[in-house]
């Protein structure tokens, strides 16, 4: 597959270079809200949506920044855009779908400090993706994030029933699990490359 093609970018962001398990972006929500499958699913959906919105915004902002030759303001403007995008999404949800808004609860505002979102905006700028490629990249990253979160929460729900030594309960166990998941995802390396 052509590395510039939309399918490759999507697959790469979702599986091969999974944002959580290969690039270590968004570890805080990955460890924080992966205790139950339901919350993990809501968090994944919310993140996916914010990723899409902020990716589009970041694409527009970058055009402006390059046009006026003020790229050193990139970081500040991106984070401001993401924070306001999250705020907008929150207000829109509250107005149009109060049920969903209640389900998301505290997770929406927390997404502002999710480094996967800022990372996505920065990566798409570094790699000079065009608009369609950026869209594919952001959807892929969102799908990958949700996938990792769902896998982790499924494992942790099972783990509640397992007997583990008292030293390894809690964070240490989750990290070991994440390591194994990440090891499994390494098996996807090279997927979609021209030799396969």
């Amino acid at each position: 597959m052509d590395p510039e093609s939309v399918q490759f970018i999507f697959l790469n962001a979702a599986i091969v270079n999974n944002f959580v398990l290969a690039l270590f972006l968004g570890i805080c929500p990955f460890l924080g809200v992966s205790a139950k499958k339901e919350t993990a699913w809501n968090m994944g959906l919310a993140t996916m949506f914010v990723m899409l919105v902020s990716s589009v915004c970041a694409y527009g902002i970058n055009l402006l920044l390059v046009r006026f030759n003020i790229e050193f303001l990139r970081l500040i403007s991106y984070i401001a855009v993401i924070a306001s995008a999250v705020q907008l999404v929150e207000m829109a949800l509250k107005k149009f779908s109060p049920g969903l808004s209640r389900a998301m609860g505290i997770f929406l505002p927390l997404i502002t400090t999710n480094c996967a979102i800022l990372g996505l905006a920065l990566f798409q700028t570094f790699r000079e993706y065009n608009f369609v490629q950026s869209l594919a990249f952001s959807i892929g990253a969102g799908v990958g994030f949700t996938l990792a979160l769902m896998l982790m929460s499924g494992l942790r729900e099972k783990l509640e029933l397992a007997r583990v030594p008292s030293v390894s309960q809690g964070a240490a166990m989750s990290l070991m699990l994440a390591g194994l998941l990440s090891l499994a995802f390494m098996g996807f390396a090279g997927l979609g490359s021209s030799h396969a």
Binding site: L21, L23, F24, S166, V167, L175, M176, G179, L180, M186
Partner: peptide, 25 residues
Amino acid sequence: VVMILPPGGFFVLGGWLLLFEWIKQ
């Protein structure tokens, strides 16, 4: 080699947390 790859990060941090928890207990 796995230690400098992504899974190694999770394993080493998990290992340190285990050590600290053991000392605490």
